[in-house]
């Protein structure tokens, strides 16, 4: 399997007024295509910072990030929009659907940015909605959907453009335990059946147990790593 994300001695420091707050302190890691990886750790351990950097929505203070074979460290943030659009899918803790769009339109939105034809958009959107089991709710607005249904729509939106990596920031944090279990099972199935690469940041032990690979962060450093048996 080829490497899809590579961190080389990554540092990330935030500035709060005159105080410097180190979030990541020299992390190096590599994630291969098709992996189901969870980044776990207590609050402030740097997992969200790491996910932001993989997602090309933030820049490291030092170090190099290779994403899908491309050094993204030197590319200015606005220009990274194209990489996010074409190679990344995002799943958020609070679902982050566009409230004025229905489920179908929410999933269709990333394809509009990529100028897919109307027929291809329709085919891909319906396929994505079916894959997450929410096709029957296609015409419903987010406020007409349950939390679990919203997260399914968000997963469909993340998957619809066939991204190299899907990033999920605490995807089950706002769901009840039953729904959270269903969402984890769904993502796991998509990983196994369609070889979609998933990278999570999470507290949720159910996700860490489901993960094939678990990276522990503490104080901005990798504190340990577990790989499940095949």
């Amino acid at each position: 399997m080829s490497t899809v994300v590579e961190f080389c001695e990554i540092y990330k420091t935030y500035h709060l007024g005159k105080t410097e707050v180190p979030a990541l302190r020299g992390i190096s890691l590599a994630i291969a295509s098709g992996e189901f990886v969870a980044i776990a750790g207590p609050s402030g351990s740097g997992k969200t910072s790491a996910l932001n950097l993989i997602g090309c929505i933030d820049k490291p203070t030092a170090g190099r990030i290779i994403f899908a074979g491309q050094d993204v460290t030197e590319i200015p943030l606005p220009a990274l929009a194209a990489i996010r659009r074409e190679k990344l899918g995002f799943i958020f803790q609070t679902f982050n659907l566009i409230p004025v769009l229905n489920a179908y339109e929410n999933v269709e939105y990333p394809l509009l940015l990529r100028h897919f034809s109307a027929s291809e958009r329709k085919q891909r959107v319906m396929q994505a909605l079916e894959r997450v089991g929410i096709a029957d709710r296609a015409k419903h607005k987010p406020n007409e959907l349950s939390g679990g249904q919203r997260q399914r729509v968000a997963i469909a939106r993340a998957l619809v453009g066939d991204p190299a990596v899907v990033l999920a920031d605490e995807p089950t944090a706002n769901l009840d335990s039953v729904t959270a279990g269903e969402i984890i099972a769904l993502m796991r199935r998509l990983n196994e059946e369609q070889n979609v690469t998933f990278i999570f940041s999470t507290h949720d032990t159910r996700i860490t147990q489901a993960a094939r690979r678990l990276i522990h962060l503490r104080d901005g450093r990798i504190a340990g790593e577990e790989v499940a048996d095949a």
Binding site: A81, R84, R85, L88, N96, I98, L113
Partner: peptide, 16 residues
């Protein structure tokens, strides 16, 4: 604000 962040995160360019 959060919605704008989401739109940008999923690849909406500044000009768009």
């Amino acid at each position: 604000v959060q919605e704008i962040g989401t739109l940008m995160a999923i690849g909406t360019s500044r000009s768009k």
